[in-house]
Write a protein that binds this DNA or RNA. Structure first.
Lengths: 210, 210
DNA sequence: AGCTATTATTTAAATGGTTAGTTAAACTAA
DNA sequence: TTAGTTTAACTAACCATTTAAATAATAGCT
């Protein structure tokens, strides 16, 4: 199809412009004419390279998700200690979603649709790397070692994810509601705060062995 | 305009059908003809009662947000103890977002748009009831009383909100990824788990006064 | 190198289905 | 009578997609 060695200037420009368009207006709100204009390309070029609007949209979703997958690859480093692992995860989510913050609107919209291929791909990506299992295993190990109190692992993990992702996904509104002036600073401090809260939250207290 | 005493059957049916439509397809994806069909009403009726598609959409957003606001009214009961307060908040979010889960797609899409009136209304609603301030004050009080350790209040609050809202907003995907079989049960347990994690997370440990 | 056949890219201009919005007349009930 | 409600048919703009022809680029051959 499209060997990755060449530099197909038009094709690339179309992809860039389409990303902008779909991020701003969504799939059904996005206009092919506007994409062509932004890409400084004749509209028919879009149908030449991608054969339909839906196809073009899908190409963007795929590219984005592929990138996300690669970046999350190193998500859990089993060799490190438990707290370090959590911190590493927290930092990776921070970095990946900060660097890709441009795509947040598209991701939220896709997450809102219940039939979206994005959701399916995301689920596949996550389960292929068995992130949930590895995560649960970490907690289980913490329990066995006696460091963690007894609690529902799933509830705990989802709380941890929520602490991390809620802010990263909805930063604009959250910043506005909670009057976060210096977002950058707030963002950087987030992993430490989250991990500390979480660790203290699940750690057994010193003499609690009934 | 439209006095709230009568029972304008057509008008109501239009609103219902439009909600369904926009929830499923969004504003730009929603079709007026389909709404008319679903409402068993001539398309012109839609323009008779609401004068444009955007207006109709806005009417639905407004109605929904008004209802949300009313239901969140009792959000913080200052008289109760701190932990009880958090639990009450957690439960209210749970109830409100569970009862309105139908509207989640529309909310997520609106949150994704950076110019949405929904976002502005949401921010106004929250700040009119000064929820952020009251929340921060609760934490501050906990610190003064010596019960809470020293930490960034804003970070803590946002973590709390994240634990609660992340799951409620994205339940379908989260359930799928984390293999939550019995969603209802999981949901019901959530407030207690969240509050316990959070309280333990910010409570000072017994002899920690450096 | 030059000439040619073939393939890739680009363009301007349609096409035609879709869709928000309109009109003007008819019906209904107070 | 009068105001509110409903209908069928219409319109005009919009917008994804196509067509057919032109222009570059490339490879093959002598």
């Amino acid at each position: 199809m499209n060997s990755s060695l060449q530099k197909p200037s038009s094709r690339t420009r179309i992809l860039e412009a389409a990303a902008d368009e779909f991020i701003q207006y969504g799939l059904s709100g996005g206009r092919v004419d506007r994409i062509a204009k932004r890409a400084r390309v004749n509209k028919a070029m879009i149908y030449y390279y991608f054969s339909s609007k839906d196809n073009l949209y899908q190409a963007i979703i795929d590219a984005h998700l592929g990138r996300l997958g690669d970046e999350l690859q190193a998500s859990i480093d089993e060799s490190a200690g438990l707290e370090e692992n959590l911190l590493a995860i927290s930092r990776i989510y921070l970095r990946v979603l900060t660097e890709n913050s441009r795509y947040l609107p598209i991701m939220l919209r896709e997450l809102a649709a219940d039939d979206s291929t994005f959701r399916k791909s995301l689920e596949r990506m996550v389960s292929e790397r068995s992130l949930p299992e590895r995560f649960l295993a970490m907690l289980e190990e913490g329990k066995r070692s006696g460091r963690f109190r007894d609690c529902d692992n799933r509830q705990a993990v989802i709380s941890f994810m929520g602490m991390n992702l809620f802010y990263l996904l909805l930063a604009p509104i959250v910043n506005s509601i909670w009057k976060i002036g210096n977002e950058e600073e707030f963002r950087e401090k987030r992993p430490r705060e989250v991990v500390e809260l979480f660790m203290r939250g699940i750690e057994r207290r010193d003499s609690n062995v009934g």
